[in-house]
Simulated scan of single mutants.
Amino acid sequence: MHLLTEAALEPDPLRLPLRVADALCAGMGAQGAAVTLLPHTEGAQLLCASDEVALRLEELQFEVGHGPGIACAAGGTPVVIEDCRQPHPLWPLFSATVGEQLPQVRGLWAFPALGGDETLATIVLYRSSPWPAHPRAVQQGVFAAWAVARLWEHLQDVLLNEHGPSWEPREVIEAHWLSTHRAAGALSARLGVTVTEALLMMRARSLRTGTPLPQLAAAIARSPASWTDD
């Protein structure tokens, strides 16, 4: 995909993720795109989102713990939702929330960026109209995901450091991903469970109480001892 090749020539590595997202939108005819690293693990990390809708789609998946990007990463194969207005039996909460909060999202495709047998990242693209799964278009998405994986392997040392990702929007990444991971680690140590189990407990409480996951994570970070069993 020549648009991704052009994006890879961006001289500023911190601008590169958004250039990649824009290239994916243009090349695939999507309204928005997001790339998330390791979305099927507790180390999930947003790399870039082209707009607020793409960002919210990634936030929703991170908050509820399921969705097309996570399924795509876990299975290593593309996931195609031709029309989000049709309820999806595998992700009822995600599907219902998208319908309520993001009615402009109709077609939703997810592709795994593979490194060998492992999923390094996923690309999630959306359209504001139904998106039929034409084989040639799906293959184009598979190739785009392959190109993103090669790009990530080349640039990960530049984009990551001991303080976490250095790209923007920093405040969004801090609130929705990094702080939540740190809180899950603190809760894990307090309760003697794994980080994965701690994150599942946080998600369950967030959904049950209606407390946004970042807000819950901030409370745990301030005082892990404040967590009490229901």
Rank of each mutant, 00 (worst) to 15 (best):
Q101D: 15
F143T: 13
D12Q: 13
T122E: 08
Q139Y: 12
H66M: 13
S95G: 05
A137P: 03
R106N: 11
C25P: 00
L24I: 05
T41N: 10
A189C: 07
F94M: 10
A219V: 02
H181C: 09
V64S: 06
L155E: 11
V20Y: 01
I123L: 14
R205K: 09
L3Y: 04
L38F: 15
D157C: 10
H88P: 01
T196H: 12
P13L: 10
V158L: 15
T119P: 01
G65E: 05
E63K: 04
A74M: 08
C48N: 03
R170N: 02
R190Q: 09
V53F: 05
A21R: 03
T5W: 09
P165C: 14
R85G: 12
H181A: 13
A21N: 07
L155N: 11
A121S: 14
P13W: 06
P214R: 00
G210C: 09
L24Y: 03
L216P: 04
H66E: 15
R136N: 14
L187M: 09
G99H: 06
T194A: 06
F62L: 07
T122G: 08
V172K: 07
L213P: 01
H88C: 09
H2A: 14
G67S: 06
L4E: 00
E171S: 13
L55G: 10
F111N: 00
H40A: 14
R182G: 00
L160E: 06
S128K: 03
E59Q: 15
G115P: 00
P214T: 01
W131M: 09
G29T: 05
V142M: 14
T209I: 00
A110R: 03
L207Q: 12
G32F: 02
A145C: 09
W152L: 12
A144Y: 01
G116A: 07
G192W: 04
P39I: 05
A7I: 00
A49V: 03
V98F: 05
D230E: 15
T196R: 15
T196N: 13
A204F: 06
L46Y: 01
G185K: 00
R170S: 11
W167L: 10
R222A: 15
P112T: 05
P212L: 05
A225P: 02
A33M: 05
D230K: 08
A113Y: 04
A54I: 02
E82V: 12
D157P: 06
A189W: 08
E162C: 12
W152F: 08
E42Q: 13
R85W: 14
L155Q: 14
V124M: 14
